[in-house]
Nucleic acid binder design. Structure first.
Lengths: 224, 224
DNA sequence: CTTAATTTGTAACATATGTTACAATAATAA
DNA sequence: TTATTATTGTAACATATGTTACAAATTAAG
């Protein structure tokens, strides 16, 4: 697949046609870089001067502290720019770490070059503005999720988000280990919380399927 | 004080001269609105379609849940735009509530008008980009602060931030009540944590002055 | 199908933080 | 100064979450 064909589907170049993208690439310094599974793309508090677009594979943004506690922020899949929301601030230190989930190809554009492109192209600029704004909202909601909810509340919110078409049976594709990192808690604590929801007869678990028995109580836990 | 004189010092119009600002105002629909102390400017999850610039007074951004838990995000003082980082996203719901700290005057510009102004003025646009980017970083750091640190760690970080010119004596102007809302915890818990830092001889308290006795241990708690 | 690896449940205990209530102290107003 | 209000310290207890360890169950690999 040609690079421009991938870029045409990216968030940041959304709305541009292929010829514009090809033209942009010709006048920009860029390079491709490949990361292996679990390779660190950059560390929290490192300076970042690249606009990095995921071409293939996947990376994750996460925070960890000295005690080994891990908080996974999100996965970043092809077509998305890494740390876009942090790129134009007054200092260049990035507040998250980014790690490759698997073998991943990343397109790197020099930050100054990217700034120039953005200022010359209204579409890219409004895309950027919208993307950063959405990211701020994402972070603010994450803040609420992480510091205002109990573990049962987090799991309840998660289930309600995963619901599809009002069906009360939800198929879960994440392990408890995955979820505990996203919730910023330990795995046994999550397991206990789920066990309590089951013994309160609010949910029933059948393999990878969760059935909601008592929607009202679940919503109360999720406080929504 | 004339409106344009205030705006010239605002973050968003930073770098523009007075005549440009006067010209902008002439071609924009705006209005002034006054809020009394503790009046709600808008609620979490409310739709916002205004660019709101604080002219005088002060408001605070906060989150609260059904159980009455309050998490104060920050104070917003004159010259700053409220919720700027959330204004350009794909949905218009704002993830925080904003409340007036005291009698506050706010300049409201219609969001569509503001978008037009921004697109016609590179300086305002780059200002906006930088401000939103800084806000994202602020939120991400807040996330780390709130979910990766213990209470003692939060207070230690707070003290280290408050240090001025390597002086080991710090003057605190906040009450424990204030701090507990910013830390997202209860006041007695904060008091206990501070008491422990004192009995561990890491800090000494003399009225509103805190003296750091053991910088290394304090930094360990702050994990930095 | 069998074995190995991963995932989950769970128990016993440790620790951090919340809750409530009240006294001690400090700051402010009368 | 005195009275009032705001702030802080603190105790006793409740609850939520972390820690460690291991067995049971499930899934993947040979």
């Amino acid at each position: 697949m040609k690079l421009s064909e991938i870029l045409i589907q990216s968030q940041i170049f959304n709305g541009l046609d292929e010829s514009s993208i090809v033209h942009l690439l010709m006048h920009t310094h860029y390079q491709m870089k490949t990361y292996e599974k679990d390779e660190i793309v950059f560390h929290r508090n490192q300076d970042l001067n690249w606009c990095m677009l995921v071409i293939s594979g996947s990376v994750r943004g996460e925070m960890s502290n000295i005690d080994g506690k891990i908080l996974k922020i999100e996965d970043i899949n092809p077509g998305r720019v890494i740390a876009l929301a942090f790129l134009f601030g007054t200092n260049t230190k990035i507040p998250v770490s980014v790690v490759a989930n698997c073998k991943t190809e990343i397109l790197r554009i020099n930050k100054v070059d990217f700034l120039r492109v953005m200022q010359n192209n209204t579409k890219i600029l409004t895309n950027t503005l919208q993307l950063i704004s959405d990211r701020s909202k994402f972070l603010a909601n994450k803040l609420y999720f992480l510091s205002m909810k109990t573990i049962k509340g987090k799991y309840a919110s998660f289930l309600l988000e995963q619901m599809y078409k009002d069906s009360l049976a939800i198929n879960i594709q994440y392990t408890q280990e995955d979820l505990s990192e996203v919730f910023g808690i330990t795995r046994p604590s999550l397991s206990r919380a789920i066990g309590e929801l089951v013994s309160e007869k609010i949910i029933t678990i059948k393999g990878k399927t969760i059935i909601i028995n008592d929607m009202q109580s679940l919503k109360n836990y999720a406080n929504q």
